[in-house]
């Protein structure tokens, strides 16, 4: 009798502890990064760190601007490619496709999200990079460094973002009530008019949330981008230029030139920036989605 109760108490406490631990981990990571990054935050003004284009650790110049711009170029390009493709396919899946087809395709879409990013990277190196180098860049009259470019990164990343946007958007669109569709149809609207003016309008906050989630996934993605983007620390001026996004910088250099003053601190600051941006994007998107679920929006 008492052991039974003891087990009950213990198990609930244990689960609470596990939950708290998982939550605190995030907090400790952010706090740890901030603590280790503070030396450089004290010595160099934050505006210099964010907006200086000079990156020469040996002379103590830590301008993150090229890396931040590299990250933004790749991420924005990936999002721009991913939005139309994934929106159209999720509209098709949730509005036009038969139940059978949807049930068959959706697990495949989720599977796409589970493929290791290094595999996407390899695909990028073996297929996308040569395609840009041999076909696309010459056709557009652009110069590339062997095809390694922001465009290659954007294409590979966009494929990785598809499943997130498709599944979240589809979910939100299927939540739009049948009554609303019936109202529009009964007024004589065609199916497409109904989708365009009613379903998409009602689902708009959710679609924005899906895009923000996709954006934050692309923002933090490291391996696949690092393999195809060229990794040159220069502010890019076209999608055929190479770039050096923040995650690639961290993965490539952390642990190597640690004897240089403040280097460790600079890299950890980059990690902190990444963590915060991804965290904020996720929180915003989740808040929107939770509000949709509760029927507030």
């Amino acid at each position: 009798m008492n052991t039974r109760r003891l087990k009950d108490v213990l198990s609930s406490r244990l689960m609470l502890a596990a939950t708290v631990f998982a939550f605190l981990l995030l907090f400790f990571m952010a706090a740890g990064l901030f603590f280790r990054a503070s030396p450089i935050l004290i010595t160099v003004p934050i505006s210099d760190l964010l907006f200086s284009i000079e990156w020469s650790p040996f002379s103590g110049k830590f301008g993150f601007y090229p890396f931040i711009m590299g990250t933004l170029w790749v991420t924005v390009l990936a999002t721009v490619i991913a939005i139309p493709v994934s929106l159209l396919s999720s509209i098709y899946l949730s509005e036009y496709a038969s139940n059978g087809l949807r049930e068959m395709v959706m697990p495949l879409v989720d599977l796409l999200a589970g493929i290791p990013s290094v595999v996407y990277g390899l695909f990028g190196v073996l297929a996308v990079v040569p395609f840009i180098n041999d076909t696309l860049a010459p056709a557009m009259g652009a110069e590339t460094i062997g095809g390694y470019s922001i465009l290659a990164g954007g294409i590979v990343l966009s494929i990785m973002v598809f499943p997130i946007i498709i599944s979240v958007t589809g979910e939100v669109m299927r939540r739009v009530s049948g009554e609303l569709r019936e109202v529009s149809l009964s007024l004589g609207a065609t199916k497409w008019q109904t989708i365009k003016h009613v379903v998409l309008r009602k689902a708009r906050p959710g679609i924005i949330a899906a895009i923000v989630l996709g954006f934050s996934r692309a923002f933090g993605e490291t391996m696949a981008v690092l393999m195809v983007v060229g990794n040159v620390a220069k502010v890019p001026s076209s999608i055929f230029d190479p770039a050096y996004p923040l995650p690639a910088l961290i993965a490539n250099t952390y642990g190597e030139m640690m004897s240089i003053d403040l280097y460790d601190s600079a890299i950890l600051l980059a990690a902190l920036i990444l963590l915060l941006v991804v965290l904020i994007c996720n929180v915003i998107a989740r808040i929107i989605l939770v509000r949709i679920e509760r029927g507030i929006i």
Partner: peptide
Amino acid sequence: RKKLGLLAQKPTPLPMSIYENVAFGPRIH
């Protein structure tokens, strides 16, 4: 469907303004 107006069980305004709701039908036609 244009000939048959429908008044549903639950009031179902479209997710837009009062004006747009009424103008929706004529607009799509």
